[in-house]
């Protein structure tokens, strides 16, 4: 990220987490939502799965230490709206996610905190995951503006909705500043809604 918040490129190594429909309860179990900050979440990402796999989860695999690009399969982040899920991944060092598809609220939460989620067809996800597993040191580079992902000698053309791409490239992925600009227009909508300002007489 540049000083002005623009996110145009993400570079680093990758970590594949395979499986369809990996829900936000699996990404961060609900007991870690018993907290009034996000700051301590990082170490708990995928905690229950990691315990069950006894060190064999990719997040515990030394080959993927320090990875910043998470590569996943279909419908990643389904379920709960908990922003704790992307916050945990971010605090664990994840800066971008590439997957076949994402659940909608998860995708929006990632955008709002500055994590681009790009999509590739299933076969290319499979190829990228295998590449990372075989050569974990492969340097990945994501050009957020064009959607091009280079992985060593390989290149992939990923997709990102135009509005989201624009938000990252312009540095306005956290919408609050833009939202605050429309003060008068917000008041106008507020004032015209009968359920707020009163029902017209009949």
């Amino acid at each position: 990220m540049s000083d002005d918040g623009r996110i145009t490129h993400v570079a680093g190594t990758g970590v594949p987490v395979r499986g369809n429909d990996i829900d936000t309860d699996r990404i961060i179990p609900a007991r870690y939502l018993r907290e009034i900050t996000f700051e301590t979440l990082g170490p708990h990402a995928f905690e229950d799965e990691r315990r069950q796999l006894n060190g064999k989860h990719p997040f515990d695999d030394a080959r993927f230490t320090g990875a910043s690009v998470l590569v996943v399969n279909r419908n990643f982040g389904s379920g709960s709206s908990r922003e704790h899920a992307p916050q945990a991944l971010m605090r664990r060092g994840i800066k971008a996610i590439v997957g076949e598809s994402f659940a909608e609220i998860f995708f929006g939460n990632c955008t709002t905190i500055g994590i681009p989620c790009l999509t590739l067809p299933a076969t290319q996800i499979e190829s990228l995951q295998s590449l990372i597993e075989e050569e974990p040191e492969t340097a990945l580079e994501i050009d957020v503006g064009s959607g091009t992902i280079t992985a060593g000698q390989a290149a992939y053309q990923a997709e990102l909705p135009a509005s989201v791409r624009e938000a990252f490239v312009s540095g306005e992925w956290d919408a609050l500043s833009s939202l605050l600009e429309s003060n008068d227009a917000i008041s106008a909508v507020h004032d015209r809604l009968p359920y707020i300002t009163g029902w017209p007489a009949r």
Binding site: F38, S81, R82, E83, H84, P86, I105, G108, N109, T112, I113, P161, S163, D174, A175, L176, S178, L179, L180, S182, I186, H190
Partner: peptide, 20 residues
């Protein structure tokens, strides 16, 4: 619809969110 915590902040501050 459900929203994340940063959007809860947005609603508190502006009563609006950015959404497609």
């Amino acid at each position: 619809f459900g929203i994340g915590t940063s959007q809860v902040r947005d609603v508190l501050a502006t009563q609006t969110i950015s959404v497609a």
